[in-house]
Design a protein around this nucleic acid. Structure first.
Length: 646
RNA sequence: GCUGGUGUAGCUCAGUGGUAGAGCAGCGGUUUCGUAAACCGCAGGUCGUCGGUUCAAGUCCGACCACCAGCUCCA
């Protein structure tokens, strides 16, 4: 028998018989490790524990704490679920069933049957039963023709369609119990490793993600090696629901969505407006320091303007239909602010001395989102962009990109938000989606990347995520339910200057084309506030809190003093409310705690005599008494600093 | 847009074909109170909308609207 050399993660090497399995190696190290092992990484590929290793290899044992281990665990769980479905619904056809970030899903075709909650419970019960039988997952390699034969016999057209792509290759199948699936692997050694099972939901999903294809039923589930972890996960899900901005927005009276106004058209209530305006004020100050100039443009514009920009044909489907006048003129509700700003740029000859010109507007735009797409404040049909366009000479471009990325980062830092940054490139295989010359694109993508590397930006690249006129830097954040939303964006545009014939006179006396940067650090104020609500769970930092403090007299007897305190704070611009209701202080405290107001100021005999307030902080309780003046100065300072903590 | 689910008072929810209910919030009164819910009373509804079945519909059927989950899309 030949020997092979195995290299462990710590660099140690050891010889084994050829054909040894990962599990055997693990057992050789320790029993405990063998028990915890879920899969192995062999030369960078994740393999089954039982798969024989036939040549020298680097080797790592994957446990639950490794991503690769979780993948194998959840992927195997998906197979277990498929087995349960096949037992309960004979003749079920299977699509794909991968592991995902949190758990797994499997796409099914059950003919006419729609799965109910009861069905999901039955599937979960059956999975528990099948898992407890602890049967092994067995890998089998077949010739392509034999695999096709197998699934033909089974009548699984989806698997046959998948097989089409692997023509001529060796195909791996996995068996466990009565179930066999087309699968690359890897899998757990046996079903018994799967201990705690929860089927979460069922939803429709198009076969292969194409809306022209049949809609299948997708079952989502998650599993864990023990019940405690499952319970913790389910608890976190509940917590996330408590943070949901739609729920908090209604409870805290921040915004209103009503079909009487229209789907996806939020109304900002007084308290939500305070948050929105605080954000605008913050960004205005930062932009003023950076040489931006404010402009204001109307909500509709001549349709021809959008034909010039090229937006009209490209995005016809996601615009509200034009407003057609009898004269033949047509107007479009503006889907974006750029063309208006280009008009302002081109109103007179521009000199290189004027550049860069930075035009900023909180511009409300309207887009016809598909009816199933609306989602609280994060996906709406009318929203306000913190938009700006920077017109600069080419030799100024990189400095301007850098400055806009840094401004965007300052914004997210101010809120303590964890963002992921994507360089969004065009897809070279699908060029009809994009405008402009290929050379411009290559140049713009190169320039963005150079700046990103210069400032050591932590980014990933998204092919096909560019806008139609240029590549972008996108800033993405996740909401309470783990859905990713794009917030800020910085985009380089060589196309619009051409389309609008934008020019400046250079030092050489000749006409030149400027380059445009489109940028919006918040992206949309609606979406940003939605994400902020969830980010802070409604407990805003003082500078954003709609109500910063409430004055609570202990009884009517101290109303006069309470009014004094209230006025002193109100006159300093602090957002304070007076609770003059005829209620006990315990009741008032409970009420203001549920409203998530940062400070409650209890006043009674003691406070009145000493010119004091008794400070109670949200969630932290009684903080003792201070002079009214001292409290006022302290919180004014905190507000001014836009501090994240109190 | 597609698939599935949901829609009863401001909010959370009960109500399985026979006279629409509870708690909280609101309003009126009593109480004058010290750090998360005092007490008594009152009011509040075209049961999402429209149509159908039935002697009778919140309840059964259909269409539409909105919301929720997911898919597709996203300048």
């Amino acid at each position: 028998m030949n020997k092979i050399k195995i290299t462990f993660p710590d660099g140690n090497q050891k010889e084994f018989e050829q054909g040894i399995t990962g599990l055997k190696i693990a057992e050789g190290i320790s029993k405990g490790l063998a028990k915890e092992a879920l899969a192995v990484e062999v030369n960078g590929e994740v393999w089954d524990l039982n798969r024989p290793i036939n040549q020298d290899a680097s080797f790592k044992i994957l446990k639950w704490s490794d991503d690769g281990g979780k993948d194998a665990y959840w992927h195997s769980s998906a197979h277990l679920m498929a087995e349960a479905v096949e037992v309960l619904f004979p003749g079920a056809k299977f699509g794909i069933g991968p592991a995902i970030e949190n758990g797994f899903y499997y796409d099914l075709d059950l003919g006419d049957h729609s799965l109910t909650k009861e069905d999901l419970q039955k599937i979960e019960d059956k999975m528990n039963e099948l898992a407890s039988r602890d049967v092994p997952f067995v890998r089998e390699e077949k010739k392509w023709e034999d695999a096709v034969e197998f699934f033909k016999k089974k009548g699984d057209q989806y698997k046959l369609e998948l097989l089409d792509e692997f023509k001529g290759q060796t195909i791996s199948l996995y068996h466990h119990g009565s179930f066999t699936d087309l699968c690359r692997g890897p899998h757990l050694p046996s079903t018994g490793k799967i201990k705690a099972i929860k089927i979460l939901s069922v939803a429709g999903a198009y076969w292969r993600g194409n809306e022209k294809n049949k809609m299948m039923q997708r079952i989502y589930g998650i599993t864990f090696p023990n019940k405690k972890e499952l319970d913790e996960y389910l608890f976190r899900l509940e917590e996330a629901k408590r943070r949901d901005h739609r729920k908090l927005g209604a409870e805290m009276e921040l915004f209103l969505l009503t079909p009487k106004v229209g789907s996806g058209l939020p109304l900002w209530l007084p308290k939500g407006t305070i948050i929105r305006e605080s954000l605008i004020q913050f960004l205005k100050e930062e932009q003023y320091k950076r040489g931006y100039q404010g402009v204001v443009t109307p909500h509709i514009a001549n349709l021809d303007l959008y034909k010039t920009s090229g937006h009209y044909p490209y995005y016809k489907d996601s615009q509200f239909p034009p407003i057609q006048l009898e004269s033949g003129e047509a107007f479009l509700l503006k889907p974006m602010n750029c063309p208006h700003h280009h008009m302002i740029y081109s109103m007179k000859p521009r000199s290189y001395r004027d550049l860069p010109i930075r035009l900023a507007e909180y511009g409300t735009v309207y887009r016809y989102e598909q009816s199933g797409e609306m989602n609280g404040l994060t996906r709406v049909r009318g929203f306000t962009q913190d938009d700006a366009h920077i017109y600069c000479a080419h030799d100024q471009l990189k400095a301007e990109i850098k400055a806009t990325i840094e401004l965007t980062q300052l914004v997210f830092r101010t809120f303590g938000m964890d963002v992921k940054t994507r360089l969004s490139y065009r897809d070279d295989k699908n060029t009809e989606k994009y405008g402009g010359e290929a050379a411009f694109w290559d140049q713009a993508q190169r320039e963005i990347k150079e700046v990103a590397d210069d400032i050591k930006l932590d980014y990933f690249i998204g092919i096909g995520e560019a806008s139609f006129y240029g590549p972008k830097v996108d800033f993405m954040v996740k909401d309470a339910l783990n859905r990713t939303w794009q917030l800020g964006t910085v985009q380089v545009d060589y196309v619009m200057p051409e389309r609008f014939q934008l020019e400046y006179i250079g030092q050489d006396g000749q006409k030149h084309r400027p380059v445009i940067i489109h940028r919006a650090p918040f992206g949309s104020l609606e979406r940003f506030v939605g994400i902020l609500i969830e980010h802070f769970a409604g407990e805003f930092p003082l500078w954003l809190a709609p109500t910063q403090a409430a004055v609570l007299p202990v009884s009517d007897v101290f109303l006069d003093y309470a009014r004094e305190v209230f006025s002193a704070l109100k006159e300093s611009g602090i957002r304070v409310e007076l609770d003059d209701r005829n209620e006990k202080v315990g009741y008032k405290i409970r009420d203001w705690e549920t409203k998530k107001v940062p400070f409650m100021l209890v006043v009674g005999e003691k406070e009145k005599n000493g010119g004091l307030v008794s400070v109670r902080q949200h969630k932290k309780g009684d903080q003792g008494t201070v002079k009214v003046e001292e409290f006022r100065e302290r919180i004014l300072e905190n507000i001014k600093a836009r501090s994240l903590t109190i």
